[in-house]
Write a protein that binds this DNA or RNA. Structure first.
Length: 779
DNA sequence: TCTGTATTATTTTTT
DNA sequence: ATAATACAGA
């Protein structure tokens, strides 16, 4: 997957390194001159605990990479150095940079172990599977699988409460697990019906994962920590393996990760952590800043290094970001000094709605990327759903972009389906995977049959696989018995293939024998063709992974553990990305969008002071990603859901008012006029009611707002259609839909914004679209 | 009893 | 718009 060429470089032994010892240290010393005094201090503090408090853009990655290279140059075997990063991408980047440094210093490149906590734990547990009481080929459930497991557990318990959504329950389960609580404890502490039900679901979820031979993300950490805690032999073995440990983004470490770190560090205490309390943005998933703040208490011998020189951003950007985060109490407090000059002012644009916001951004991108295009631009937003307006506007205006997050390759349905078959071949008792593909492609196993199987499994307390076996064996006549037997035989064949064939070849068998490929070939819509290509890509990825010397489980682990941010390639161009995923990245130009109350800060965090503080840090992170320019935008009206919901006016984000107004220029065309820049200042008048706000905005608005989709696909007969009453002139028109092809309009309802059209497609039935969203063209 | 079509609820952030 | 669910036809 994210393996690169250096993975194949043979690790050089300790003696080889010693052989060139003196020579290398000299050259390494020269390289260390490239560091500033503080960074150098962090690098040369070789033994014992080290805490690096590093503000945004102060070169912390640089400090860690030089530190590791320096250790290797001094003769420390590369594979006894561990660095834990927040994403796989960051890990890859770090490995590359260490390799580069070693090459420059003339040191034979060695490979330190760099990975995320989760990948580290996955590999540890694979190697120590027997000691951990796990089968070596356990599955790793990703987020989707986890939600499916919760759903299954809820169905089994026949719990169907409105306020207990699977995702919500999963959050509670994860919270409990990360706080070391068992289902029994959760139940004992519960004082509401919801709490008790959550405890029951938790118990059923744990059992389901156990029976399926699967671990979730939390389990990877928990089981590793437990193993190291309880098995002295294993603990000493791994402590002996890692002599120097580094943890990046330490402010976002949770309790279990902390325990892991301590267990691995052991008595040697060669631990170096890097963090910034202002960039802690994962408290909601158990991260705990106090772990960072109490490092010096945990390790009294700790040396503390502060990195405060910022090499990334202009002083204006830093001042603006600093002013925002200054509103948070309980900071260690630090001064960030830009090495760059003041730079240009920040910009502010307020559009009527997300479309206007997106069009403004698209125009700016056009300007920025006009001539030379080696610049990197980021469109940052709080929630993934905000990306759509930008995607539409960019596509209309021909702005090329890359989307990070959302639906990544390994989350595609066809990829997950294929991998579910693979898991089933390993463990047929994996209910989640079984339910996923039992009737994909359709083999005549419908809801009724599945319900019956579930009931059998529930009463017998067995996995569905056994229930299938029982149903088939019982000899009862039923329509579903034959397809069930076929499915059984299919899995049998796959098991056979798994044990005899190479992984890539095995995957090919999976796709052919299951009929999955045939299903796609038969349907052969544009989407199906794309799916087939994705599956080919998957097979290719497996083959490449094998060539790189990885095992099949390595590959599967990586597929489960890819993170959204891993998709970012750092190439010139435009990237759409959530604020959370931007952590650790940097861009020449940043657009921080959707700066509204309810979006950023998000409405779910708005009621608690702690929530607001974290949102503020999120904004701080987003702002400090920018090197040269930072533009803040917002939309006055936003739809909560797709279309039915009404437009809702929102107030400007409170964080905008925290930025000193003299650092910001309001863009021409912004709805908030220049006189209204006072909104940037703390102003009691700023907090008027939403009704009054709406009135004000309407007052400001131009008398005839231009139609928004001027550059869009031709909107057929809009002017005519407005004249309602007589037979709609749109009826009978031929239109083209991107995936359904050409059809005829057979119905029109509503008008303007919400106008919906029914289109009859030959052979595919009648579909109803919201005209504004469906990309219909006149045919 | 399965399969396709109509209706409805759904969006915080993620390893 | 998309995903889950309900309903009707084969």
């Amino acid at each position: 997957m994210h393996r690169t060429w250096f993975a194949r470089i043979v690790t050089v032994g300790y003696h080889d390194v010693c052989h060139f010892f003196l020579n290398h240290t000299d050259q390494m010393l020269k390289l260390l001159d490239e560091l500033n005094p503080e960074q150098r201090q962090a690098v040369e503090a070789q033994d014992g605990p080290v805490l690096i408090l590093a503000g945004a853009g102060t070169g912390k990655t640089r400090a860690i990479t030089y530190r590791m290279a320096n250790l290797i140059a001094k003769g420390v075997p590369a594979d006894s150095i561990l660095a834990v990063t927040f994403t796989n991408k960051a890990a890859e980047e770090m490995r590359n940079r260490v390799t580069d440094l070693l090459l420059r210093a003339g040191v034979p490149p060695g490979q330190p172990w760099v990975s995320t906590f989760h990948s580290l734990c996955a590999r540890l547990l694979r190697r120590e599977a027997p000691a951990a009481g796990l089968p070596r080929d356990f599955a790793i459930y990703d987020d989707d699988d986890q939600v499916a497991a919760v759903k299954l557990a809820m169905a089994k318990l026949q719990i169907d409460a409105d306020d207990l959504t699977p995702r919500n329950v999963l959050g509670r389960i994860s919270y409990a697990k990360n706080h070391g609580k068992s289902p029994e404890q959760v139940r004992a502490e519960a004082f509401t019906q919801d709490g008790r039900q959550t405890a029951d679901i938790f118990a059923a979820y744990e059992k389901a994962l156990h029976d399926s031979k699967a671990l979730d993300f939390d389990d990877l950490l928990l089981r590793s920590a437990r193993l190291l805690r309880e098995s002295q032999i294993t603990r000493e073995k791994w402590q002996a393996r890692f002599h120097y440990i580094h943890v990046d983004e330490y402010q976002d470490t949770n309790r279990v990760q902390y325990e892991l770190m301590r267990l691995l560090t052991g008595p040697r205490q060669n631990i170096c952590v890097v963090g910034d309390e202002d960039q802690s943005i994962y408290a909601w998933r158990g991260a705990d800043v106090s772990i960072l703040l109490s490092f010096s208490r945990d390790f009294p011998a700790a040396r503390v290094v502060k990195l405060e020189r910022n090499y990334r951003s202009t002083q204006n950007i830093l001042d603006a970001a600093g002013a925002v985060v200054a509103n948070n109490p309980e900071r260690l407090g630090k001064s960030l000094k830009a090495e760059k000059s003041a730079g240009i002012n920040l910009k502010y644009f307020e559009g009527r709605d997300p479309q206007a916001e997106a069009e403004y951004v698209a125009g700016e991108l056009d300007r920025l990327l006009g001539g030379d295009s080696d610049q990197t631009c980021a469109i940052e937003y709080r929630t993934n759903s905000q990306s759509r307006a930008f995607e539409e506007a960019f596509r209309r205006q021909g702005v090329r972009y890359k989307l990070v997050g959302g639906f990544s390759f390994y989350h595609r349905a066809e990829v997950k389906d294929a991998l579910a078959y693979v898991r089933l071949a390993m463990h047929p008792e994996d209910d989640i995977s079984l339910l996923r593909v039992l009737n994909v492609p359709p083999r005549g196993i419908g809801k009724t049959t599945v319900d019956a199987l579930r009931e059998t499994a529930r009463t017998d307390g067995t996995p569905l696989w056994n229930a299938i076996e029982k149903t088939v064996a019982s000899g009862t006549v039923g329509r579903a018995v034959a397809p069930l037997r076929t499915f059984q035989e299919l899995i049998g064949k796959l098991q056979e293939a798994l044990s005899t064939k190479e992984p890539a070849e095995f995957l090919h068998v999976v796709l052919e024998e299951s009929g999955y490929m045939d299903m796609l070939k038969d349907r052969n819509t544009a989407e199906d063709v794309a799916r087939m290509e994705n599956l080919e890509e998957l097979t290719r990825a497996v083959a490449e992974s094998m060539e790189a010397g990885e095992t099949f489980t390595d590959f599967l682990d990586a597929a489960s553990l890819v993170s959204d941010a891993d998709q970012y390639e750092g190439k010139p161009g435009v990237t759409l990305i959530t604020l959370h995923s931007t952590k650790g990245l940097e861009f020449d130009h940043v657009f921080l969008t959707g700066m509204e109350e309810g979006i950023c800060p998000h409405s779910r965090s708005i009621n608690e002071e702690k929530g607001i503080e974290e949102e503020r840090r999120l904004v701080y992170v987003g702002m400090t990603r920018a090197r040269k320019s930072l533009t803040l935008t917002r939309a006055v009206y936003r739809r909560v859901f797709g279309n039915e919901q009404q437009l809702r006016a929102s107030l400007p984000s409170r964080f905008l008012a925290e930025i000193p107004s003299e650092l910001v220029d309001t863009v021409r065309g912004s709805l908030a006029e220049i006189g209204e820049t006072r909104r940037y200042e703390p102003d009691p008048e700023y907090s008027y009611s939403s009704e009054e706000f709406l009135r004000r905005v309407r007052g400001v608005q131009k008398p005839a707002p231009a139609p928004r989709r001027t550059a869009g696909p031709p909107s057929f007969g809009r002017a005519n259609a407005k004249r309602a009453g007589d037979a709609n002139p749109m009826l009978g028109r031929r239109v083209r839909h991107p995936s359904y092809g050409v059809g005829t309009i057979v119905g029109v309802e509503g008008d303007d914004e919400d106008r919906r059209v029914s289109v009859s497609f030959p052979g595919r039935g009648t579909k109803k679209f919201v005209e504004r969203y469906a990309q219909l063209e006149q045919a």
